[in-house]
Design a protein around this nucleic acid. Structure first.
Lengths: 343, 343
DNA sequence: ACCATTAAGTAAATCGATTAAGAACCTACA
DNA sequence: TGTAGGTTCTTAATCGATTTACTTAATGGT
């Protein structure tokens, strides 16, 4: 005579003639009841079709959820389109999956952490989210948070030395005393518009990876004794091939035509190479192009891309591991220059 | 004199000298109290730092969560590596994001829906999950479910006519009365091993997309008056370039050397083309190769890939929309043959 | 002046669990 | 035989909210 359609701890307990606590203990604390009782209860539950305590209720009571939210820099769409971000996610998910923890995707466009804070054990935040309010909220309301590629002075963080890496790669590209440099940047401005950037001085304190990389470039450029023109930097608001191509085309047909292109991502660098070839320029004779990230496609491209390789998947694994350990520390990830034929 | 570190509805109510219900109503049912009271309460909450009702508790009470689980065919890793799956996810997330609903990633390797059923409003299941138990559980315990690329006879589903599409593309490839066909399949067997497949008859009833596509191929092959050899089909257990390359190499160096390669995905077809070129074969003169999916890279490759194009992003959007509408129906998605130079 | 509505707010049950404290019983040792 | 200790199980408070049914006061029509 199975009573309810959907069983609860309470109804099961009543059906079996034992107390709530005993059923709960049967599932959670085997030491609290006799082995015989326990097995009897478990068997009965299985037979009746009760699959164990409701997780939502359990979580409310316990305050733990087995869910971590991955805060993305932008929309979910962006995340799965970008090979670097995808690798990172692969690393994160591998570790979490192994630990039986679920992953909730949280768009960096959201303007309120509120809809998820109460549902998760914490946050892994990949890059500075597009919506700045999120940063403040993370600081204030997150139970636990690991930030990647930027820092909010809380819990743990994972970083690559972007400034040093950019310096290194730019230095490599500028070896031969070239004098016409252009920079194809990431999201340097908040205006969502593909445009040139003029007020360089404003970025010397910026904390996003775009700003960090820009500082590295600037340093290398100035070390090489070159003066960077006022209109030689492009702001590319989102990491898409479309935007990258437009910016590359613009840069390559601007005057004076640059013969060194410092690109803040491989996606951009590849688009730039395609455009350059399409314009009949030869690489690196007419224009040297360097990227950042080290994605597979860059190594397959002809000519092979010169870039900074960072192991994003490893970064993801470290971030997740750090999250689970609840340790409070900052991990710095290695990078390597990958020298191709594009510079 | 702010009392607790972290406010609850109850403590806020006490602090303000009103009842629980009134505070709750202030947030959820404006019509239940005077405008003045409401604004007063909301302002006080803001000042005290109470950001609104705890979502976990709210969900427990209401039974709704604003979270949908995306059940993946395999690990999360696989999902972000596969361009087709990524597009699908892009479509899903775009629609959900617009509706303020969060996405929980659920690996198809999990053996228990249990850890999430109580946390989500339902499931979008992309392809038959690797772990078959999940299918049974979906049928039984899911509040709501939309399946994609397969069917469990519940709620809604989104499908492409894989069999017809495969028939069409195979027919195109076999136009010239070729006689040496090989098939590079997806996951046809459950053994997780890259191997040849012998017992073809077993698949005539299979419901996964791999089986559906195989039926299409078989039909076209038999229509062309060709007899498919007993060892001409490869089982590729996961959609990775590594496996695809190995299988392609094996197929292309098998006797008799096939001059038509029917590949169940573009990823496989591209790997096959690379291997063929590496072996000094010319495409399509020595071997015709066709794929399935219509990913961008296939159109950039030289020679351009001949394939079946399906709009995965659209598929994702439809699946999500169907989920939200709670309608009970089956949507069939269009496909188009994309004729390149590879066949 | 009377009764019927409507508006504003509250008390208490409820969602489905966990867990501290304690009751009842049994064992065993001096 | 008395009591200390150990098992086994139950009672009841609690997590943080929503919502039905109800009280009280104010309004309005005749």
């Amino acid at each position: 005579m199975t009573k309810p359609k959907t069983w609860t701890l309470k109804s099961i307990a009543k059906e079996l003639g034992v107390s709530n606590a005993t059923v709960s203990n049967a599932f959670n604390r085997p030491d609290q009841l006799s082995k015989a009782r326990r097995e009897e209860i478990l068997a009965a539950c299985k037979k009746l079709g009760y699959f164990g305590p409701n997780k939502a209720a359990q979580s409310l009571r316990r305050g733990t959820f087995n869910i971590v939210a991955l805060v993305l820099p932008d929309s979910v769409e962006y995340m799965v389109s970008d090979p670097v971000a995808s690798s990172f996610m692969r690393g994160v998910s591998a570790v979490l999956e192994k630990n039986g923890i679920n992953l909730l995707l949280f768009s960096g466009n959201n303007d309120n952490l509120n809809s998820v804070v109460d549902f998760v054990d914490g946050f892994i935040c990949y890059g500075r989210p597009r919506n700045k309010q999120l940063v403040e909220q993370l600081k204030q309301v997150a139970k636990h948070v690991v930030t990647v590629d930027f820092n909010i002075g809380r819990d743990a963080s994972v970083n690559v030395n972007n400034q040093q890496a950019s310096f290194d790669i730019a230095k490599h590209a500028l070896q031969k005393n070239d004098d016409r440099v252009a920079i194809l940047g990431l999201r340097l401005l908040d205006n969502d518009v593909l445009c040139r950037v003029y007020e360089h001085h404003e970025f010397e304190a910026g904390q996003s990876i775009a700003h960090q990389r820009l500082r590295g470039y600037h340093q290398a450029i100035s070390d090489a004794g070159i003066t960077l023109g006022d209109d030689r930097t492009w702001n590319i608001p989102e990491s898409s091939e479309r935007f990258a191509s437009i910016a590359a085309k613009e840069a390559l047909s601007s005057t004076p035509r640059p013969n060194v292109l410092l690109c803040m991502s491989d996606l951009i660098a590849l688009a730039a190479m395609r455009e350059a070839l399409k314009m009949g320029l030869s690489i690196p004779e007419d224009v040297k192009i360097v990227g950042f990230d080290g994605i597979d496609e860059g190594q397959r491209f002809v000519p092979k891309l010169t870039t900074v390789h960072q192991n994003s998947e490893e970064k993801g694994r470290i971030a997740a591991t750090l999250f689970l350990s609840k340790e409070q520390q900052t991990a710095e990830i290695d990078y390597q220059l990958q020298l191709g034929q594009s510079s």
